[in-house]
């Protein structure tokens, strides 16, 4: 088994070898080792993608907009991902974004996961008909099949920033709270006098 450190180093060097700058290659190394930790085929997807772009100049969107596409070619997942994390404040304002014609879209996933961490909110991502959710760079929830997939191109990738909201109703919360109060001790007159430690009057 390759260690995470080996995956990082080899991915970085391979990205540099096909023409990405060292600084970008460093990001690639980190990203690939991170999604491999989640069991997603980062190395397979990267290997395939890097082979397809030898000799051509990959590009990301010129600037981040609601709908992002290039007229004459498909989007590079690495430059698109970097655009997202480098412009995370604009992305947060736009909230829902669409990317048309994106190569090897699973390679975008670790960048979206990092984006989720930078913004501090969970992010839904759909790659055509596959759905995943990135949670503050600490986990990726996805359809089980995503683990072994190599996806050459997505027609549409949508990302949607989720607001920080409870996943439960206030009724459920109140019920749980009531249960938790059963660990408390009922107050008595004496405990009111002596239990808290502070004075009874604060205006002395």
């Amino acid at each position: 088994m390759q260690s995470s450190s080996e995956i990082n180093t080899i991915s970085k060097r391979a990205a540099r070898a096909v023409g990405y700058s060292w600084g970008v290659a460093e990001e690639v190394g980190k990203c690939i080792s991170s999604i491999e930790m989640f069991g997603i085929s980062g190395v397979e997807n990267l290997n395939n993608y890097l082979k397809t772009i030898k000799g051509i100049e990959p590009e990301g969107p010129k600037q981040i907009e609601k709908t992002n596409k290039l007229n004459d070619k498909s989007l590079c997942p690495i430059y698109t991902g970097l655009k997202l994390i480098d412009n995370y404040k604009s992305v947060e304002e736009i909230k829902a974004l669409k990317f048309i014609n994106l190569d090897y879209p699973l390679l975008l996933l670790p960048f979206v996961n990092k984006l989720s961490y930078l913004i501090g909110k969970r992010i839904e991502i759909s790659i055509d008909d596959i759905n995943a959710e990135c949670n503050l760079n600490s986990c990726v929830l996805a359809d089980h099949q995503i683990k072994s997939l190599i996806i050459k191109k997505a027609n549409t990738v949508k990302i949607n920033i989720l607001e920080n909201e409870d996943s439960f109703s206030s009724k459920t919360w109140n019920e749980l709270y009531e249960m938790s109060t059963e660990t408390f001790v009922e107050e008595t007159e004496q405990s009111k006098q002596t239990g808290a430690g502070a004075g009874l009057r604060d205006n002395d």
């Binding site: 700058s21 600084g23 655009k83």
Partner: peptide
């Protein structure tokens, strides 16, 4: 903004870091 600078100067991203 640094994000804009990095778009045109990707070759120096490692030292910006």
């Amino acid at each position: 903004e640094l994000s804009k600078f990095l778009e045109e100067n990707s070759d120096l991203r490692h030292v910006v870091r």
